[in-house]
């Protein structure tokens, strides 16, 4: 794992030095998130905070829904790709003011650490304003290529909305997954 530790260390340092270079964070997030047991957090935190490491974590306030929805490692985000609406004026399941939630999207399955059950998550995009630009996050559990659109997070899902302009992404729980 030395290469990954080194990458994490170097990249975190670069984030601090160049806030304008946030474009790589999602890609780096993908690099880290897919590797079980490795600390995604240093990079995810730096990505999410935007205002520096002194920003305290937040929570859903619901012990059955544990984690910080402004962080890439929040359990619902196991297949998300985009800017987290929780950092953009919305929440993990609602859009920022003045945007419109896409009725179409892809659906994944994530395991809730609170009860160990798998839940069906709908990754609805929020549309109608240009890119939020904060808290980019890319995790790819269950993601499949674009030609399997119902299982793909690469697509701009601002479809069926007034405009295709993408702002941020949510993760809405639809229900319990059945095997």
């Amino acid at each position: 794992m030395n290469w990954l530790d080194k990458l994490t260390e170097r990249s975190t340092r670069n984030i601090a030095q160049r806030s304008s270079r946030r474009g790589f964070l999602g890609l780096l997030g993908a690099t880290l998130a897919g590797t079980a047991g490795l600390p995604l957090l240093p990079v995810a935190r730096a990505s999410s905070a935007g205002a520096g490491p002194e920003v305290p974590p937040q929570s859903t306030g619901n012990p059955d829904d544990p984690g910080d929805p402004t962080q890439c490692d929040y359990w619902r985000y196991c297949g998300i790709d985009g800017f987290l609406c929780s950092c953009c004026g919305g929440t993990q399941n609602s859009c920022p003011p003045g945007t419109e939630m896409s009725p179409l999207t892809w659906v994944g399955t994530c395991r809730n650490p609170a009860d160990g059950l798998n839940y069906v998550i709908s990754y609805n995009d929020c549309c109608g304003k240009s890119s939020c630009g904060r808290c980019i996050c890319n995790r790819n559990e269950d993601d499949r290529p674009v030609y399997r659109p119902a299982a793909n997070n690469d697509i701009d899902w601002c479809i069926g909305t007034t405009t295709n302009v993408y702002n941020c992404s949510t993760a809405v729980i639809l229900g319990l997954a059945t095997e």
Partner: peptide, 11 residues
């Protein structure tokens, strides 16, 4: 190295 589910965009 150490690829698996969800690592296909890792580079």
């Amino acid at each position: 190295p150490e690829g698996g589910e969800g690592t296909h965009k890792n580079g």
